[in-house]
Write a protein that binds this DNA or RNA. Structure first.
Lengths: 244, 244
DNA sequence: TCGAGTTATTCTCAGCATGAGATTGACTCA
DNA sequence: TGAGTCAATCTCATGCTGAGAATAACTCGA
């Protein structure tokens, strides 16, 4: 915790440290998981792609800073459906200018309009996560951690609904799981499973207006339920290679 | 990410921020989960209990800083069996002196000798987590987050073995789960479950020298296996209240 | 208008994992 | 020596899982 000897109360007796927030903002477009990245307009790494982020301000909370940077750099003004702290990255040398400790946040949103480059950014785009160019700083690693967190949280929380709109079908939900996990799921079993988890989804009595574009009956519409945890959980197919 | 305009490269243009690490070090003593806390020797909160921690140094990684602070403040020089980043806490006002962002780490260790107060600490003790006095700063909250993380990770990782010594019996392992979760478990089912998870434990062919202090046969001794994830997971009994 | 193809929803069924309880036999202590 | 303890194993009813199939509502192009 803070301090030891009185001398240490004065930050100038310490090597200067800067604190930033970086945001891994995820959404689903065209059945693929996308991340919001910006083209840096300033040095270092000017011209390189990076996660949106920036220095915290003296009077704002860390999460507030994440939302603000998202809005400033990308024009994504909608508050994300879900925002959670991911992890912190602070090894010496990760920024060539000075010691920078960065708190990464993970944001989920339903499909949003195209972002607009804002302060400090030359461009801002949604990009498929499985095909991201090398990112500045250690952002490639941060993105990987964020994607893994998202995949994992889909298993035991109703977070997938944060990627969907107000109303959705079970198939919409399944496509979200398939997009995030990158794995096809058994439609019948998924259906049974979702409806059997108390509080995951809530029927509305409504159905879609038409069948799918290629046929099929109208689907029932659901909204997010009040569960905070899925019990039992929806587990990913076992990934043998990750166990050992 | 770092920086915007060149002026911002200079940290003095920003309100000063200090970065600390705090450590939630957990162990099991006398069948109860204990946390390592120190009595602060300096202001602010002098005389209050707190988690061990302190400022990071310019040339060290965050995890290194956590290990160093643990050793300096408590004399716990053994490298913990497991160390992972927990979360960061950085709201304005959490430290009365200045803006302090703290990266919390979670450490697990087998039962260690009593700690010794070191730099900046008037005392250092292992204290049962379910009976901890109010802590300085937001450390009560950090501790709660750490304990919840530990409880949760026992479900799907072989982390419980980090609380055990080199060799342990299935009953030792069960006592660890019971201590951390605060719940009695069915001995027979636990036994079956642990042995059925590939790579969780590895038989040694050895047994304890004697039966238990109150009787019973000698137990087989195991060591930690090579699994990184438990599959299938050992789930806690459902906690109805946490689901909604 | 018709037929082929698509998809939401529901079933079936075998296999595995679970919780609860009981059994066996090795060991302790008084 | 006898009562009590406890590791280890089994039984059994129940529930969840993956895989496959059936049903019926809808689309589209011919």
């Amino acid at each position: 915790m803070p301090a030891s000897e009185p001398a240490e109360y004065n930050p100038r007796h310490y090597a200067p440290v800067a604190v930033t927030v970086d945001v891994v903002a995820l959404t689903i477009r065209d059945r693929r998981l996308h991340v919001l990245i910006v083209e840096r307009g300033v040095e270092p790494y000017a011209g390189a792609w990076a996660l949106p982020g920036g220095f915290i301000r003296p009077d704002e909370d860390l999460a507030e800073a994440a939302v603000r940077e998202l809005a400033e750099e990308t024009g994504v003004a909608t508050r994300p459906a879900h925002l959670e702290q991911l992890a912190s990255y602070g090894g010496p040398g990760r920024d060539p200018r000075m010691r920078v400790v960065s708190i990464a946040y993970l944001a989920f949103a339903p499909d949003l309009p195209d972002p607009q480059a804002g302060t400090d950014a030359a461009a801002a785009v949604w990009h498929p996560v499985d095909d991201v160019p090398p990112l500045a700083f250690d952002h490639t690693r941060i993105l990987a951690d964020g994607v893994e967190r998202a995949r994992s949280k889909l298993e035991y929380t109703p977070l997938a609904t944060a990627f969907a709109g107000e109303l959705f079908t079970i198939s919409d939900l399944r496509l979200i799981y398939e997009s995030v996990w990158g794995t096809p799921l058994h439609a019948g079993n998924f259906h049974r499973k979702v409806l059997s988890v108390p509080g995951f989804v809530e029927g509305t009595g409504q159905t879609t207006e038409t069948g799918g574009p290629k046929g099929g009956p109208r689907a029932k519409l659901y909204r997010a339920g009040d569960a905070r945890l899925l019990h039992p959980a929806l587990l990913r197919p076992a990934r043998e290679e990750e166990i050992r």
